[in-house]
């Protein structure tokens, strides 16, 4: 059953990705990107990652779609006619894909409880979280407590990205928008 659900979601995601490849109207491309994110959120639920699905649905289908629409409104609505088909990108992509697939052959099979990822520290975290922190959501406990350092770094990265955006197009260069309130 799981395999079937995964396959159906995959088929839909591949179809979306191919449609993004073919479409030339950027509005459709951006909307399909939102659809892709929502489908991947569904897949995250079937993979037990509810927190991740939550984030992906809010970020991918919400914020990033809005940002891309904003960019589109500032730039152009249509992609130019694609240049002539050249086999080089396809060749590069096929070779990279083949190498990656060759790399997966040694991996433990999907969902195996004996794989190294499961037997190393994961069990420890699951065992110690209730004793150490008393927080039922293990993901939150690891995020904020055990790996607080990492999360601090990520927060700083998010902040830095905002500073970068503000420097590039933000309010520091105020000359271009005399009546900024009217953009509705």
């Amino acid at each position: 059953m799981d395999v079937l659900i995964n396959l159906v979601l995959f088929a839909m995601m591949v179809a979306t990705a191919l449609a993004i490849l073919r479409m030339r109207r950027l509005f459709a491309v951006v909307m399909l990107a939102g659809v892709f994110s929502l489908l991947s959120a569904l897949l995250f639920v079937t993979l037990d990652a509810v927190d991740v699905a939550f984030t992906e649905a809010a970020v991918g289908a919400g914020i990033s779609t809005v940002l891309m629409l904003g960019t589109m409104a500032l730039t152009s609505r249509e992609e130019k006619m694609p240049r002539k088909f050249s086999p080089l990108p396809l060749l590069v992509v096929c070779i990279t894909g083949a190498v990656l697939i060759y790399g997966t052959l040694d991996m433990p099979s999907f969902g195996s409880a004996q794989s190294p990822a499961q037997t190393h520290v994961a069990a420890q975290y699951l065992e110690r979280t209730p004793k150490d922190t008393g927080v039922p959501n293990v993901v939150t406990a690891i995020l904020a407590s055990y790996r607080g350092y990492d999360t601090f770094g990520e927060t700083v990265v998010v902040f830095t990205a905002a500073v970068g955006v503000l420097i590039l197009i933000g309010g520091f260069a105020r000359r271009r928008d005399p009546e900024e309130g009217d953009a509705d």
């Binding site: 993979l47 037990d48 990652a49 927190d51 991740v52 984030t55 992906e56 970020v59 991918g60 914020i63 990033s64 940002l67 990822a117 499961q118 520290v121 994961a122 975290y125 699951l126 293990v138 993901v139 690891i142 995020l143 790996r147 990492d150 999360t151 990520e154 990265v157 998010v158 990205a161 905002a162």
Partner: peptide
């Protein structure tokens, strides 16, 4: 399931949108 990848990816998604 293993919560560690969830933590890594959760933060990566938000960093990704930024």
């Amino acid at each position: 399931s293993n919560p560690l990848p969830h933590v890594l990816i959760l933060t990566a998604i938000v960093v990704g949108v930024a």
